[in-house]
């Protein structure tokens, strides 16, 4: 990737005897202060640590929570969503995941998002704007397990749809939880069908589970209709 990272890796692998307890440096090079101000696309990318299992893509965890009492808007959505961190290997993923509360234990109107690094979990992102998502509504109590199964399948490249997958979301709501997986091209029916079948398999869903595919265009439209903000928000 760049020289700095390569040098770090070499340092690691050179130290054989006692180093196993020492921290691996996969995410050291992830930035602290300076990058926070920068846009995601300019952010330095994480690399797998020495001896770790690299993922096909780098991913980022996000968290969002609707501020109670205030009407949602695009602006507030973007403000409410926070990036938790990025990872490039299986080991790094577990480090994040193990410190995150399980979705089933989240309170209020909140979401976890796991997206490929560089893709914002928003309909408007370039990677998403032509896309759509599969939605599965779950009764309470199932979200944690299903979410884990879903993201492990995604990270492990089990969907076999090339670069189509963008990310996954778990949304904790009042009476139900919703998990969804986003892909790039809503019009590609073979891809969406394949994603659906894989979902059934990896989530081990009962056959009568209702799965719904929604294009983001429809989502935007529905959202605008609901909020009546077509004009007010200036083109949202």
């Amino acid at each position: 990737m760049n020289n700095k990272f390569d040098a770090l890796k070499d340092d690691d692998s050179g130290d054989h005897d006692q180093d196993q307890g020492s921290p691996k440096d996969g995410e050291k090079e992830k930035t602290e202060d300076e990058d926070k101000e920068q846009s995601i696309s300019k952010k330095k990318m994480v690399v797998p640590g020495a001896g770790e299992h690299p993922l096909q893509y780098n991913y980022s965890f996000w968290y969002s929570r609707r501020t109670p009492g205030r009407p949602a808007s695009t602006q507030s959505y973007e403000q409410n969503i926070k990036q938790i961190g990025s990872f490039a290997s299986v080991e790094q993923f577990w480090r994040f995941y193990s410190h995150m509360i399980r979705p089933g234990d989240l309170t209020g109107h909140s979401d976890f998002h796991l997206f490929k690094e560089g893709i914002k979990p928003m309909w408007e992102d370039d990677a998403n704007k032509m896309g759509g998502k599969w939605i599965i509504r779950l009764r309470k109590g199932l979200a944690s397990r299903c979410w884990e199964n879903l993201i492990l399948a995604m990270l492990g490249e089990q969907f076999m749809v090339g670069e189509e997958i963008c990310g996954a979301v778990v949304s904790v709501r009042f009476q139900e939880d919703i998990i969804s997986i986003w892909n790039k091209t809503a019009s590609d029916q073979s891809t969406t069908a394949r994603i659906r079948d894989t979902l059934r398999r990896v989530l081990n869903l009962p056959p009568n589970t209702i799965m719904e595919y929604k294009t983001h265009t429809d989502s935007i439209k529905a959202w605008e209709d609901f909020h009546g903000l077509v004009n007010a928000s200036g083109g949202r």
């Binding site: 995410e27 968290y63 938790i84 480090r95 994040f96 410190h99 309170t107």
Partner: peptide, 21 residues
């Protein structure tokens, strides 16, 4: 899953109640 390096990633955003598990 519980690899030896399961410490808190240094760049992890601390969100109380969410990422301090």
């Amino acid at each position: 899953r519980y690899c030896p390096h399961a410490f808190i990633p240094p760049d992890m955003q601390l969100i109380p109640g969410v990422t301090d598990h």
